[in-house]
Amino acid sequence: MPVVDLEVTSLRDFNQMLHGLGDGTNETYFRVINPRGRHAIAAGIDAAVTVEIDGNAGYYCAGMNKQATVIINGSAGVGVAENMMSGSVRVKGDASASAGAAGCGGLLVIDGNASGRCGISARGIEIVVKGSVGHMSAFMAQAGTLVVLGDAGEALGDSIYEARLFVRGEVKSLGSDCIEKPISDGHKDKLGKLLEEAGMGGEVDLSEFRRFGSGRTLYHFHMDNLGAY
């Protein structure tokens, strides 16, 4: 079980080593100590390994992740798991702005709160936030799911395409073309499975969630919508 002390090993060397791991690697677990808010820790992994980070991570932690499981025992800076393709990222503390930005796949779980623009431009990533999310979350989100057990800030889902949003608490306001939609048993099943995958199965009553999505009025240019573009 390699322990990587970032006060001793350079972050560039550590990331380079992670990038060199191929399928069937014998080293499958790394513990990182002294992250001290460094940027791009464990970014760009493409191997089925687990990286556990003890402390607070800086910007773009676990960005572009493929296959790997990255656990942050602390908080994460801007753009955690941005552009994730597959695998999973768990933040035990809070996440800063743009968590899961432009993610194509995989699961991002945030035990604390996420700041503004959580899930911005999501393209298939699934995000579960146990706390609340800030303003403009799921802005221009194209595909994927954002589940918020707490509240959502201003302009949720502004200019959203086809991502699905589930919020259990209050929504301060909806962004342009984001509307509330009925929640069917099928949606609840999927929501329940996702929460189970996120390790929160049975913790909350699924009937407390509301669903939001695209009103599909901004897809094509329309003169009457000029003010909303």
């Binding site: 001290r36 808010g37 460094r38 940027h39 402390g55 607070n56 800086g58 910007y59 908080s75 800076g77 503390g93 809070d94």
Partner: peptide, 16 residues
Amino acid sequence: EYRALAGLPGIDKAKV
């Protein structure tokens, strides 16, 4: 950025 705060005494127990 958090990096600026990482060297402060007791930061591990601080409310961030």
